[in-house]
Write a protein that binds this DNA or RNA. Sequence first.
DNA 1: CAGTTTTACTGTGTATACACTTTGCCCTGT
DNA 2: ACAGGGCAAAGTGTATACACAGTAAAACTG
Lengths: 253, 253
Amino acid sequence: MASAPIPEAAEATSSQTVRALLRLREMILAGELAPGERLSEPVMAEATGISRTPIRTALVRLQEEGLLEPIQSGGFRVRAFSLDEIRDAIQIRATLEGLSARLAAERGVAPALLEALADCVDQIDEVLAGDEALSEARFAAYVDGNARFHELIAGACGSEVVRRQVERAMALPFASPNGFLRVQAVAPDALHTLRLANAQHRAVVEALAGREGARAEALMREHARIPQRNLETTLAHPAIRELIPGASLIVPG
Amino acid sequence: MASAPIPEAAEATSSQTVRALLRLREMILAGELAPGERLSEPVMAEATGISRTPIRTALVRLQEEGLLEPIQSGGFRVRAFSLDEIRDAIQIRATLEGLSARLAAERGVAPALLEALADCVDQIDEVLAGDEALSEARFAAYVDGNARFHELIAGACGSEVVRRQVERAMALPFASPNGFLRVQAVAPDALHTLRLANAQHRAVVEALAGREGARAEALMREHARIPQRNLETTLAHPAIRELIPGASLIVPG
DNA sequence: CAGTTTTACTGTGTATACACTTTGCCCTGT
DNA sequence: ACAGGGCAAAGTGTATACACAGTAAAACTG
């Protein structure tokens, strides 16, 4: 706000634009900004202590990402995702991840990467070992490992173009894992579901190692049915609407 | 530049940002800006007569689109696409169009849209009728019709999310049709190739009408092999390097 | 003569000021 | 009381100014 550099630096991110981008995305995904709500630049500038220019840049990026939609008279509003659109986004992501897996298998995956993938799967298995109900900490560990696996797959075909596209698809309408965590309390067979998911992870790695392109793709797509199923069972539960205040849903898989 | 409204209006586009976006994209795709070249904001502002702010907004958009890449020290440079990346982009596009076709078939396509698709295919057939070699005008007409068909497919599943993603994939490293047009002179079997392509279009429409999701997807993917083959045969020709100065290649299909 | 340091310039990142558009509210007239 | 027009306020789009960083070139020193 002042011309001083403001060295308080709650976050040591380099640029104001990045700060604004992260903050705004966080606010949207956390539901602080209601879907359909208009984002006033002056208001956001005041709220974040960042001037209008970086805010504006961040808004343009978020529109390009699909989280915001332009308003006729100018400016942006928070995009409201329908359930069908969430289903679509799951499909898109699954399809692109399948493509990435197939290309990776066809072109061959570096041994180091194969090992990293195998390690990742093993680590997830360790997290899921035992019979006790899934604690939040263990679930969080699963989410981390899962995210890592999917990142590795996205980059496995060695193509920046593919990686970007997959990443974009993954960022789409999947909101914070919080929503799902709370839903976990409702789902009794979470452990079983996640073990199944990791078994599929392992199968994908094997297909990659065997350079079986079509199989890698099919397995990866099949894997995507888990989030879809999670979504449906989650929605079937009557208490959901209350559990998830902003209609942001999330379904890692 | 001056504070006057500048009512000359060579193009009656509403906003400076849109003007800048279109102009810059055109310049990049036409090869006026060499791949790897840094885009200086002041220079572009001077060249276009638009001030830095809209230029900057356009640059951010183009980066998000993937045509520009950020430079460490700030600013952007024109993204140079390798042949492998062009192949990847074709695959991505084919995969997403396949998805769109499948979803559309599964969910059912409105009769009006089916009719529009059929009309589109018929129109292309008319363009391709006759035995004379393909003139530039007829080829341009084909390109138009083809683009229209693919747009319709992208929107056929009725999902904004899917449509956006497909559109983005299509915009990726496919440059102006000019490159291909010039290559046409080299390819003697162009007419045959395009007829085959349109036959595939028709098959896709039939699959959509019959609500055969898997078939629609497979056909659409198969359809994508045409640009890929065009790319390979084009590259195989020795005179290509000379014909296409900036390594921007394009392969409509 | 070569290496290093300093200086100047170019260019981005950011802030702010200004103009124009749109929208909502109020007042007036029928 | 309702409708239409006008006015005011808020907000975007755009331009421009300023500060800091990076880079390249030139000059100075060893």
